[in-house]
């Protein structure tokens, strides 16, 4: 009786319905604009990986349908029934031919998968570097990113600006990846796969973004207390935007006499031990370079919107946003805080 069967398998049906419901929620909501999905690539390495992943998904999906289908068939067809004649079924011990057949077929699948993969590894990892490529040295720190453009004389932090590339006139960015302390990993899913930043072990990564805009990601190797808040922001600029950005970054820090008090606080309260402002006595290297602090959209490695109030709160007590952050709370008075914030706000 079909109804009896339904009743017996009510649990399975319930499970399937629940799963379908969950999947429904997921896909009805859909990924949001800022979602760094690996299926919305914007750069050659990510695109090639995306294509490869669809190919692998098709093969594994096919295997799943065949083997999973067999399993379901076996469960339904060979389950013990009430009409069982109470005999043991025929005993079957094996078959060399069948074993051989279902060994060779997976081997053939592996051969195809491997050849495809190997080609892709060589294509991405050993891609020749064009002359026009932009060089960037990325240094990971607990828990922020330092970007150095050796050819341009620019030092930036946490927000990477790279030029737009295109297939006719490729302008890829080649990153040398270093770490100042522990292991980190550079992952902006829409631009490329991740590569680790390991002390005493330089690595390389290249991207050639084909669409302008902001791409987000974050550190993908556990690196300590604030691993979660070590966010990555990559701005892909049009050539004009990029040139303008570089021009601004190459200048020394603004010297505004109206905020001299704040600057004094900066130079007397140990801020300059860790932070640099080009053109002043501050040359610290432990923390981000602040010469053009206000040209950035975010503070503290991407976790706060960059405005005066947030800046003040952040200086006052970094631990309230990033417990375990290496920036200490300097126990400044309210006046000192106001002056310091005013000074930093002029560093455009």
């Amino acid at each position: 009786m079909p109804w009896q069967w339904l009743w017996k398998t009510r649990n399975a049906i319930f499970a399937a319905a629940l799963l379908a419901f969950c999947c429904g929620i997921v896909f009805a909501q859909g990924p949001q604009a800022a979602t760094p999905s690996i299926f919305t690539p914007a750069s050659t390495p990510a695109t090639e990986i995306n294509n490869l992943s669809y190919f692998v998904l098709e093969i594994t999906g096919g295997i799943f349908l065949v083997v999973g289908g067999l399993l379901v068939y076996v469960i339904i067809r060979y389950r013990a029934r009430d009409t069982d004649d109470n005999r043991e079924p025929a005993q079957i011990y094996g078959s060399n031919q069948v074993e051989l057949a279902w060994t060779v077929i997976p081997v053939l699948i592996v051969v195809v998968l491997f050849l495809t993969t190997a080609r892709m590894i060589f294509a991405i990892q050993d891609a020749p570097k064009p002359k026009a490529a932009l060089d960037v040295t990325t240094v990971a720190h607990q828990f922020w990113w330092e970007y150095r453009y050796p050819a341009l004389g620019v030092v930036a932090a946490n927000e990477l600006h790279v030029p737009l590339s295109n297939t006719q006139d490729p302008k890829p960015t080649y990153m040398k990846l270093l770490s100042a302390d522990v292991d980190h990993s550079y992952w902006v899913p829409q631009l490329s796969g991740k590569v680790d930043l390991i002390p005493n072990h330089p690595n390389e990564l290249w991207i050639d973004p084909m669409r302008a805009g902001l791409y987000v990601g974050q550190c993908a190797q556990f690196c300590g207390a604030q691993h979660a808040k070590m966010l990555l922001r990559v701005y892909v600029d049009t050539p004009d935007q990029f040139a303008a950005w570089v021009k601004n970054q190459q200048q020394d820090g603004v010297q505004d006499p109206s905020v001299a008090a704040g600057r004094r606080v900066f130079e007397t309260q140990a801020c300059m031990n860790c932070h640099a402002v080009r053109g002043t006595a501050a040359t610290g290297r432990f923390g981000p370079d602040l010469t053009h602090l206000m040209s950035r959209d975010t503070l503290a490695s991407g976790i706060l919107h960059n405005n005066k109030e947030n800046l003040r709160q952040w200086i006052k007590n970094p631990d309230s946003f990033k417990p375990g952050s290496l920036m200490p709370a300097m126990q400044l008075s309210d006046d000192q805080l106001d002056q310091l914030t005013a000074y930093l706000s002029t560093l455009k």
Binding site: I38, L52, S53, V56, V67, L113, I121, G193, A220
Partner: peptide, 22 residues
């Protein structure tokens, strides 16, 4: 079976560059 198939996906090194540690 399913975990074996996702294992194959992870074995594909370029895709692993995306999936690793995720």
């Amino acid at each position: 079976l399913l975990s074996g198939l996702t294992g194959i996906m992870l074995a594909v090194a370029p895709w692993n560059w995306q999936l690793h540690n995720s």
